[in-house]
């Protein structure tokens, strides 16, 4: 989780990612951010997020994103 927050804060230093719940809905993250994020996650967690998982529910908060990473690394 710490690693993930670090990655996120790298992208937008001005956002408090621990509490934010609408990163996609409020357009904090745009498509460029998401792609960068996925690349970072890929190298840090060794988890590849497939295209079908790129939906608002998975990216709206750091918590949701972390859950996704956990789920994917489960396999």
């Amino acid at each position: 989780m710490e690693d993930l927050l670090e990655i996120l804060e790298d992208l937008h230093p001005d956002i408090d990612f621990e509490t934010h719940e609408a990163l996609i809905d409020q357009q904090v993250l745009d498509s460029f951010d998401i792609v960068t994020l996925i690349a970072e996650i890929d190298s840090v967690f060794d988890v590849t997020i497939p295209a079908e998982e790129i939906i608002p529910e998975n990216f709206n908060s750091a918590k949701a994103l972390y859950k996704l990473i956990e789920r994917l690394s489960d396999y």
Binding site: S31, I34, V35, I38, A39, D42, S43, T48, I49, P50, A51, I54
Partner: peptide, 20 residues
């Protein structure tokens, strides 16, 4: 285009490897 083209090529494994 975003959902069916941009994301799939961006997160395509070879593309991620290329990024690394």
């Amino acid at each position: 285009f975003k959902d069916y083209l941009f994301y799939p090529i961006s997160v395509y494994k070879p593309m991620l490897n290329f990024s690394k």
